[in-house]
Design a protein around this nucleic acid. Structure first.
Lengths: 357, 357
DNA sequence: TTGAAAGCGATACCAC
DNA sequence: GTGGTATCGCTTTCAA
C-alpha cells in the first residue's frame, strides 16, 4: 500500500540518471544508453514494479488521453449501453480511457458536464443519447474535437459530426421483409414523434409501399408509445372486434417492447403468432428479442458499430488536432453525418401471410 | 479553441504574482492580499475564463479525485446501471469523477482494468457486478481503498467491504405478500444457481413457509433460467395439463422477465392474471414491471441506494486513507458487508386467492 | 554515454 | 501584503 515507485527510484536502484530511465523505457535507449545500463534499468523497473505516473505524463505532454462522454441517460436506461461499450473498446485499443457523465435527461446539466470534463483536460468529447434525437450542442463542446453518437446537431448547418442509424432504411427493410412473406395489410406501431426515430421508421414503412406501387393506409399507422402496455393496447385496437378479414396480417413495431405487448394481446385474443398474425420488433434488444416466445424477428440497431465508428472518427480528429496545434494552423474536424445501416434479424414471429389474405 | 488560460495569464493581466492568484481564487485572499488586488484578480480570472488545470492539481496534491469503477457487464447489460448512476451521483457531489472499465464478463481482463486505473492514480476502486455474486478480488485492488457493489469477496474472511441487497429477506417478503392474499400453493421460478441470487431468494421463500409452520413443497421450486422463454416454459410446466385444482395459485419469479414469460403462458392457456393466478416479478425493472399488462407486483432492488451507499463508504475510506498516509499509520478501510433491504412494490398482477383454493 | 536543467500548471512556504 | 522558489513525476534538450 506504500507509494508507487517513481522513475527516480528506478534510476537510483540502477545507478543511473532519470533521463536514462526515461529513454530506455520509451524504447529510445539504443544508441544513447550503454547496453549494460539498459539491462540494469529494465531489471530495476521490473523489480520495483514501476509504471510511469500517467498524471505527470499528462501534464508534461498536455494530453490526458481521456475522452469525455456525456450521455443523456444511457447509463441508467436499459438501452444503447452498447454504444458506449463500442466506443470504449476502440478508445482502450488506443490507450485512451473514457469518463462518462450522465445527465439523467436533465438538459440543464449538459454545460456543467462538459465544463467538468474540459477542466479535466479531456482530449475529446462524445455526446451519446438514448434513442435518435436532435441535440442542442453544449456551448463549450467545440473547444476540443467532438462527435455525436445517436444524435445530431440541431443547427441547420451541422457543426459537429455525428454517427446515427439509418432509421428510414430500417423501417423500409422491416416492411419489405413482411411484404416478401406475402403480407399486404401491414400495421405500424410506434411511439410519439418526440424522437425522430418514430417518424423516420414510419417514413421507411411508407417508402416500402411506394416502391411497390401500393397505397399507404394511414389508418394502419398508430403512434401509441414505446412500452409494453402501449403495444398491448395498440394491438387490441387493431385486432379486437373486427372480423378476421379486417385485421392486419402483420404488425410492425418500432421497438421490441411494443412487440411484447402485441404478442400479449394476440395471446389474450386467442391468436397465434406467426400463424394468424406476424409481429416484428425493432432494436434486437439483448436477452429480449431472442428470448421472446416466439423469438422476435426484428431490426437490429448497430449500437456497437456506431460507438466504435464514432470513437474512431473522434480519435482521428484528436490526433489531427494535435498536429495542427503544433503547426499553428486552424483545427478542423469532420462535421459529416455518418449513417450506419440496421440489420434485419429473422426469427420466429414472422411467417407467411395466412391463406386467403 | 486556443489554449486555456493559466494562473500565470491571470497574474499578468492583474499585475500580480501567481501566488496571489492562487490565494485569492482559493478563498484565502483576505488578510494576505490587498482588497484592490483581489478585485483585479477576480476580474482577470473571469475575463480569461480561467479554471485551474485539474491535472496539474492532481500532480501537486497527489490526489486525482478519480474513482475507478470496474464492472463485469453493467455497461452493456440492461440491468443494474443504476448502481453506477447512484455511485456517480455521490462521487460528483464530492468533486470526484468516475472512470468505468467494463470487462464484458471476461474475468481475465480484471487485472488489466485495475492496473490501468491504478496507473491513472485513481484514489479508490469499486467493483460492480450484474447480479449478486462472489468475486475473486483482483490482486492489485487492495493497493487503494476499495469496495464491492452487488458482489462480495469470495475469500472466507472478507478483505474488501461490500454492499449487497438482502436477497433472502426479499424472497421471504415476496412470499409473505402473496400469503397475505390467502395463497398457499405458491410456486417459485428462478434461474440457475450460478448466481447466489437464486438460492438466496429461494431460501427466503422457504423461510416464509417455515415461519407460518407450513411445509415447503419442493416440487414447486423450478430453476429454469432468467429469460422470458424460461418463464414461459416453466409456467407451462406448472399450469398446463393438470386440472385447475392441482395448479399453484401464485407464481413468484426471480426477475421481471420470467414474469413476462409466465403471463404470456397464462394468456396462451386462457388464464387471467391475477383473477386465476397471481404473478410476481423481482427487480422492478425500469419501464418493464410498471408497463406490463397487468402491471407487475415485484420486489424492487435498491440499486441506486446500493451504489450511493458503496460510494459514500468508499469516499470515507479515501479520506481516511489520506489522513493515515500523512500519519504514516497503517491504512484501514472497513471490510464490512452491508445489506440493503429490497422494497415490495404492489401493482396489479397479484390478487386474492381464487375462491375454493 | 551520461547527467544536469528546463518546463508542464498549480500550491504553499518563507523570506522580504 | 507580496513575490520568489521548491515540489509533484516525467520527458527532452543540451553540454560535458
Amino acid at each position: 500500500m506504500n507509494r508507487k515507485a517513481t522513475a527516480l527510484d528506478v534510476a537510483k536502484l540502477a545507478g543511473v540518471s532519470r533521463s536514462a530511465v526515461s529513454l530506455v523505457l520509451n524504447g529510445r535507449g539504443d544508441g544513447n544508453v550503454a547496453l549494460e545500463s539498459q539491462q540494469r534499468i529494465r531489471e530495476a523497473a521490473a523489480s520495483l514494479n514501476y509504471t510511469p505516473n500517467k498524471i505527470a505524463l499528462s501534464l508534461r505532454n498536455r494530453q490526458s488521453r481521456i475522452i469525455g462522454i456525456v450521455s443523456d441517460q444511457v447509463v441508467t436506461s436499459p438501452f444503447d449501453g452498447n454504444i458506449i461499450a463500442g466506443a470504449d473498446a476502440v478508445a482502450r485499443e488506443h490507450g485512451f480511457v473514457t469518463v462518462v457523465m450522465d445527465t439523467e435527461l436533465d438538459g440543464s446539466r449538459d454545460e456543467g458536464a462538459v465544463e467538468t470534463l474540459l477542466d479535466r483536460q479531456v482530449d475529446g468529447l462524445m455526446y451519446v443519447t438514448v434513442g435518435l434525437r436532435p441535440l442542442h450542442v453544449p456551448a463549450n463542446m467545440e473547444r476540443v474535437p467532438s462527435i455525436l453518437a445517436n444524435c445530431f446537431d440541431d443547427r441547420p448547418e451541422a457543426g459537429v459530426g455525428a454517427v446515427i442509424p439509418d432509421e428510414v432504411r430500417g423501417g423500409r427493410e422491416a416492411a419489405e421483409h413482411v411484404m416478401s412473406l406475402g403480407h399486404r395489410d401491414i400495421a405500424f406501431l410506434a411511439g410519439d414523434s418526440l424522437t425522430p426515430a418514430a417518424p423516420r421508421r414510419i417514413e421507411g414503412y411508407r417508402e416500402a409501399f411506394r416502391r411497390t406501387g401500393q397505397p399507404v393506409n394511414e389508418a394502419r399507422i398508430l403512434q401509441v408509445g414505446w412500452d409494453i402496455d402501449a403495444g398491448f393496447h395498440g394491438a387490441m385496437k387493431l385486432l379486437d372486434g373486427d372480423g378476421a378479414a379486417h385485421r392486419p396480417t402483420a404488425i410492425l413495431c418500432a421497438n421490441d417492447r411494443l412487440a411484447i405487448g402485441v404478442v400479449l394481446a394476440c395471446y389474450r385474443l386467442g391468436l397465434s403468432v406467426p400463424q394468424d398474425i406476424s409481429v416484428m420488433g425493432y432494436d434486437d434488444e439483448f436477452r429480449v428479442a431472442k428470448a421472446m416466445v416466439p423469438a422476435l424477428s426484428t431490426m437490429a440497431l448497430p449500437l456497437r458499430e456506431m460507438g466504435a465508428a464514432a470513437m474512431t472518427a473522434l480519435l482521428g480528429d484528436v490526433t489531427q488536432h494535435r498536429v495542427q496545434l503544433d503547426d499553428h494552423g486552424t483545427p478542423g474536424g469532420s462535421s459529416t453525418e455518418t449513417m450506419v445501416p440496421c440489420r434485419l434479424v429473422v426469427r420466429d414471429s414472422t411467417g407467411p401471410v395466412p391463406a386467403g389474405r
